[in-house]
Design a protein around this nucleic acid. Structure first.
Lengths: 241, 241
DNA sequence: GTCTATAATTGGATAGAC
DNA sequence: GTCTATCCAATTATAGAC
């Protein structure tokens, strides 16, 4: 059966190198280097860390956890494999860290709308913001999608907690709009699903979009055309009135 | 860098066991068995083949090509690993065959609409049909999605040929509807993307849908509610008129 | 056609020098 | 912190008997 090994709580929001979590970056020896030298060093480390994370995101988001080897990530981040394993104790920890960074990007745009706003404007805005993400961070979108398809073994908890309560709050907003007669009667969940689905499609199915339309969201004209069309479909619908 | 080995044309729509393609299933020896016995044997073989394909689809669609081992597929199909490798020369050939079977299921519903139909009805119908697929064949949907995310290395050709021409034809239909004033002005491509995205979302993001709404498409009431909401959103839109 | 080895390879992870 | 050299486990795939 499929790998049962639970991608466990290699968690902790800690950002120091692997395994030696307890050990401070600098030892207790009298400071030979100046403060600025130390901070430069710290920044170097942090840079390397994020270079690795970036490379990992790029590869994981295309080929998945199992389709990507540590070697490939290391090569892309321009570090040696064992060096990479100094920063992240093992492959799974690397993966988990990539995912964690993702989630914040993910939840961000939704926070945006509240009952006081005009629903049409709020939703039109949301569509644009999500499409910007699909354009600028397609790999984030893809990795999120990959994770979902696999049954979200790692995000399940977050799904049940953070995302769920956030969605419930926003559903209330939508419900309020409907009850105030400012929005056609629609189930909040389905509306949210529709918004997510359409906007993320341009990232996750980017290849298909390109094959069929000949364009990418990077093409400014196509981007605007996309925003407009999606807004029109969801807001006005396609039936003649 | 990511596996460059091209998943080559292990193709051919042939359905006989691997490697020994040229060799007929029964040798030229005088028929010892009756015709019905032979056909029964043939059916057994075909059954086994599709059992393997079914098992493979289930696993590949969750864990991807690299996340699934031949052993797992064999176990799930209830055959030995080496026996599986008798039917499919190697893992990639198995994968390719699973994908090929998929594509037909995939293109089917789109063929359905033509300019004579009432657009609202045709599209409403299409939405329902696609949601039925998301309900009954979520693994097909997921595998397709996985393939897309990876840049469709195997489907790219088909994308450029079959799908593309099909989509162009249907785009013409939509364009005709718009020009006849039967449909609000909308870009055909974006409309098609929206339809695909929303309907497939319920399969690909099934876990999320369940986590947030508490329901599955298998729940008949939820299914109907979904059909209705998606139809309403796309057709009427959510703005009060 | 099906099975039992077994070869061959990949890739994750560790040890230990520097 | 970084590197080289290994070790070791997991898998794919093949050989060859039945």
């Amino acid at each position: 059966m499929p790998k049962t090994k639970v991608l466990a709580a290699a968690s902790s929001t800690d950002k120091s190198p692997a395994r030696k979590r307890a050990k401070p970056v600098k030892s207790a020896k009298p400071a030979v280097r100046s403060a600025s030298a130390v901070s430069r060093r710290l920044r170097q480390i942090e840079d390397k860390r994020s270079a690795i994370l970036g490379a990992a995101l790029g590869l994981f988001s295309r080929f998945g956890l199992h389709g990507t080897s540590i070697d490939q990530v290391a090569a892309r981040a321009d570090v040696s494999k064992s060096n990479l394993l100094y920063y992240f104790a093992n492959k799974e920890e690397l993966y988990v860290n990539v995912l964690r960074d993702l989630l914040s990007v993910w939840l961000e745009p939704l926070r945006g709308f509240s009952a006081e706003q005009d629903p049409g404007e709020a939703i039109g805005d949301y569509i644009r913001r999500k499409l910007v993400i699909s354009r600028d961070r397609p790999d984030a979108s893809r990795l999120f999608c990959l994770e979902m398809i696999q049954g979200a073994p790692l995000l399940r908890d977050e799904l049940d907690r953070e995302l769920r309560t956030l969605v419930e709050r926003k559903s209330e907003v939508i419900r309020a709009w409907v009850e105030a007669g400012k929005l056609a009667p629609v189930d909040p969940h389905h509306l949210i699903f529709a918004l997510w689905a359409i906007t993320q499609h341009y990232a996750d199915f980017g290849v298909q979009v390109h094959a069929l339309s000949g364009h990418t969201l990077d093409d400014a004209a196509f981007f605007e055309q996309t925003v407009e069309n999606v807004q029109r479909i969801v807001l006005q619908g396609i039936t003649v009135r």
